[in-house]
């Protein structure tokens, strides 16, 4: 089983987000070049699951965020941590606004 979130990017806008099911899950948000701006999750506190979480990301990043990809999962907390660890392994640091998480997440050395 692949551990990376490597599905094709989709265009991020209000229309595409509103078409998603209101499920729990994890996601990445990126700029037009595929540089990841956020690694996030939609948990039970998000009223409409991944829709609500991505709408928050649009407000957070504005026009800079143009792409997203996602995965529905009820294990959103452990999968989110896994994606943060992979990002840290690949890039040496987390996205700027998530740097506080670096002290919390662990370290992976995937094959």
């Amino acid at each position: 089983m692949g551990i990376r979130l490597d599905k094709p990017w989709e265009r991020l806008d209000s229309d595409s987000v509103s078409s998603l099911q209101a499920q729990l899950g994890v996601y990445q948000v990126a700029d037009g070049d595929g540089n990841v701006l956020s690694v996030g999750y939609a948990g039970a506190r998000h009223p409409f699951g991944i829709r609500s979480a991505l709408e928050h990301e649009i407000r957070l990043h504005g026009k800079k965020a143009t792409l997203f990809r996602y995965e529905f999962t009820s294990n959103y907390r452990s999968r989110w941590d896994e994606l943060l660890m992979l990002h840290l392994h690949d890039h040496g640091q987390l996205p700027d606004h998530q740097r506080d998480e670096e002290g919390r997440v662990g370290r992976l050395s995937p094959n």
């Binding site: 294990n75 959103y76 452990s78 999968r79 992976l108 050395s109 094959n111």
Partner: peptide
Amino acid sequence: FHVRRVVHTLRATHYAT
């Protein structure tokens, strides 16, 4: 010493490795 992967379980808040 390598931590190769996360193992997801019913305990969704946390994971094994």
